[in-house]
Design a protein around this nucleic acid. Structure first.
Lengths: 221, 221, 221, 221
DNA sequence: AATGAATGAGGATTCATTCAT
DNA sequence: GATGAATGAATCCTCATTCAT
């Protein structure tokens, strides 16, 4: 009996939290972070402000909830992929493709919540920020690639951070260029660059990198 | 003459604006964007609130000023580099090195202002946001590389956006790893990845990229 | 039912709005228009500033409310009278009497709100200001008088404006003279002047009006 | 020498005060009473704010100055007329004509300063407000008319207040109707009403005024 | 004497949070 | 348990007035 009532309540709770999530995303989309008031969220969710506070004790808690729920699928997929028996490159490729789709489909949330410093400081949980977790896991994929001889020896965490940055840059490009391209086009471009580099192969000579040059300065540097 | 008094006034003005800039950066650093009130900035700058409003007619104007002053050197250096007679790779290398140094030295501003969506919508000037300008110029460098045969044929703007993202990721890495490395180490890593890719050369075989595979799906993709 | 709760809420609302009206009038009386701050009104009404803003979204809305509530009874009575089967003179007489009583009883509001240019520009509703409405209706009474042969042929709207002005002048006289006279004394004086004029009848000769003189200029004109 | 320098200074002073008057009127016209800041007045007058404060120690003093200078010609003409050897009616006629012209020509000042309660309380000088003075003098003209047998016996001050009110109403009519009529038309209408009343003469019977009826109430009164 | 930068009290408005019904 | 009215601290901005140069 008690168990049933409890389960019932939990489900209702979960349902309402979903509605609040939708409402918060709408408000964020329409009014931006600054205009996202508890009043508006409650009204958009069709509940009273007092009830909203029953579900989230502070605004910060609400924002954390929205933030986490938005990021959750990304983290989940990343975790799953890390453990799969795939070559490192394929893992990266699938990660990027999934990120891209998710971001494009949930653009407003990421516009206003995830990629926003103000929120990040607001929702920064005690231990490990979402990004740090992603870096950690992508770094492990890169390490795998190095160990398996597919990748050169690089600093996995550094490259992981660059990789994430490039992925974000890719999505920003799609946002700002207004046009959403073939699902694989941008994804493959990113992987292609990271795997093969920009260098034209076959006979063409480029200036050696500074590392290869031993750090000498070119004129103008 | 009149010229003298004017010059004097301008210098004083510039001096005060500088002090306000410092104050704003401090407040931003200590209180974040949300806690950056005009009151606090004025107090930190050691002037009255009314005086602050003499220099900046609105909070938004102040934020724009801080934002622009922080970004200005980056844009200036980028513009200079674009026009220099250097190989594309060297241009990119120098850009990254300069960005990195500037960002590391002005971390607080970039933490709270430049890379923040909320501010971006606040300070978004009519036509072209700072990032768009940077993308444009870096894309032109990449185009140059392609034309000169150094780079493969890629979408310059897309790769430019990725490149900027990767550069930001690199700096974030330095911020979050807490340790600031040798000036060239991270820079060269970034250039190295973008030019040569991650792929281990010499006999090792990796899965071909989707482009080379002709778009076929691998299992799990 | 739902209706009950709604009715209850409406009554409470109306009650509070009444209290705010009183408070606003008090503040207006004591501090004048310039000193009528939302803070003071809230405090005088015994509610928090935030609550005041729940009832009136802006200061302007509050002022409009006070203005309208003060003028409402005047307009109502005027509208009623216009349609009654009374000789034009009697209509005018009753209007003046009612105005006078209302103004004397609500002196502070009219001192600071109704007869004040600054407020008029603040509360000027889109279409027809209160005065314009009054002019319109009094003009229609004068027209009636003309049609029924009681009044000479004059410009009804012009005379209506003069009539209103004279009525205001009458009340100002009572205010400034400090003494409030018999209810009918001033009222009848006003009607008497407008109906019969100042001219002494019976044998006494006065200079003909310019109209009668054909527009010739007297010395000093 | 000292005398000359003093005279010179006085003249300059007077000149500047004139410029300030013009500036204040412009600002009042463009920004209304609320937007009439000392800053704007100084800037419009082409002097520094500090200098403005040399001429008027407070904003109130400036407003009093503008108010008085605007009213001055009206008072002057009124005083002159009172003492002239003219029939009372002619005095009233000329007063109204002059007021009307002056008000029409200086509309902005009167819109925002003279007929405004907020200012009136601001500029109310200790003893006798401008209106009170005008009432006094017009009342004396009416008294003259009564003594000379031209007017019936009425309360001169009460009628003077009504008269002034009617004159203001007349000007308001011209302002609100947008059209400025022949100089004498409105003026003569006003005088005509006040001298002869609205009553249609010659055979037509109207209800007797309450005075004549002895104060009896009509049905509906 | 003229200037205009500096001041800071004051005012309108918002919004996260509480609590009586 | 749900509600939404009440709260008041906090924020942006204005402007009359002063005073050092």
């Amino acid at each position: 009996m008690a168990g049933l009532a409890e389960r019932r309540k939990e489900m209702l709770d979960e349902f309402t939290r979903g509605a609040i999530y939708e409402a918060a995303v709408n408000v964020l989309t329409q009014h931006g972070l600054g205009g996202a008031t508890m009043d508006r969220v409650a009204s958009e969710a069709g509940i009273a402000k007092g009830s909203l506070y029953k579900y989230f004790r502070t605004k910060r808690a609400l924002l954390e909830f929205v933030h986490n729920r938005a990021i959750e699928p990304l983290q989940k997929r990343l975790s799953e992929l890390v453990d799969q028996p795939l070559p490192a490159v394929e893992k990266l490729r699938q990660i990027v493709r999934h990120w891209r789709e998710h971001l494009v489909q949930n653009r407003p949330v990421f516009e206003f919540l995830v990629n926003d410093r103000a929120v990040q400081s607001l929702v920064r949980d005690s231990e490990m920020t979402a990004r740090a977790l992603a870096v950690h896991q992508i770094a492990s994929i890169i390490s795998q690639g190095i160990q398996q001889g597919a990748f050169r020896s690089v600093d996995p965490r550094l490259v992981a951070d660059m990789f994430i940055g490039a992925a974000i840059g890719m999505v920003e490009h799609e946002f700002s260029s207004g046009r959403v391209r073939e699902v694989d086009e941008a994804t493959n471009s990113l992987i292609d660059i990271f795997v093969n580099g920009l260098m034209a192969r076959g006979g063409t000579t480029v200036l050696p990198s500074a590392r290869e040059r031993g750090g000498t300065q070119l004129p103008g540097e």
